[in-house]
Design a protein around this nucleic acid. Structure first.
Lengths: 163, 163
DNA sequence: GATGAAAGGACTAAACC
DNA sequence: GGTTTAGTCCTTTCATC
């Protein structure tokens, strides 16, 4: 699939289904999107080759693995390479984002308990100032994303421009 | 699998493999963890039934879908139900965490461009104060998580206690 | 892109250790 | 709890429309 090729309605439905259940068989996926099995298999292959689909992963319940606390740590300005190295040495870090603004980094971590949280936060406190927020409730997680409906996003502006 | 049942080395390897590639066949998974196909299939079934594995999802390249910007929005104190309702009405919101601390919410969003970012942030600005950080670089994402190695986390403490 | 056929591989259930 | 076997289903590839 060329990069300039638009995703059509079939592709969008395929992406929606696979973000909901990555273990669907091609036969079942074909039934759901109303395509034959060879057709849907070829579309998935192209979506993978084009880099639209970047992978398939099982999601786990961190609580059941023994992680009692999830937290977000905001990390202030610090030497880039040192932060990256520290992140790589921190298996408790699930996601790490280099961001704009007052904080330079926002990390998402999973830890066993408060003592463990203290240990991880302390590693980053040594570099620069940090602010830790414990996640009370993930109100929304892993929302499946589809191509944006541009017209629904900015209808007043477009109407004015097109007038 | 009972909740009090410990995950053994086989389960840990299965979790590692499926977090890396959720579309592995049971036959291939069995080869990788050195178990027969029926054995590994039964273990995966039990991990799913126990809620350790919560799902399987395809991951997509948001840039290729047309989302040029990802951002984190920190949202201050506001009426819980109003925030939840607003999140539900925001398809750009990928993750939303209710957290402790000065900010009450941290949202992760994907938007097309700056105008779109403005539109989404404005929706939440109306409720309370917000702070937006654009993601420059996701240095680490979706780190596969395994049961914590407790001894590696707090070795000095354990040694003292056990002495 | 759909359909149909054929070969190889994967899944399920059973018997057994 | 694991393995092996046998039967069924799925997947892949090909050809054809």
């Amino acid at each position: 699939m060329a990069l300039n090729t638009e995703l059509d309605a079939h592709d969008t439905r395929i992406l929606a289904e696979l973000q909901g259940d990555a273990r669907l068989t091609m036969a079942e996926l074909g039934r759901r999107v109303h395509l034959s099995q060879p057709a849907v298999t070829e579309r998935v292959r192209k979506l993978e080759a084009a880099g639209v689909i970047t992978g398939y992963r099982a999601t786990v319940d961190l609580t059941k693995l023994g992680y009692g606390i999830r937290a977000l740590i905001r990390v202030g300005r610090a030497e880039y390479a040192r932060v990256v190295k520290l992140i790589q040495q921190t298996p408790e870090c699930i996601n790490a984002y280099n961001v704009t603004g007052e904080d330079s980094w926002i990390l998402e971590i999973a830890v066993i308990d408060v003592a463990h949280l203290d240990a991880v936060v302390t590693k980053f406190c040594i570099l620069t100032e940090t602010a830790t927020s414990i996640i009370l409730n993930p109100a929304r997680e892993h929302q499946p994303m589809l191509p944006p409906q541009r017209d629904s996003v900015r209808p007043p502006i477009r109407k004015v421009i097109n007038a």
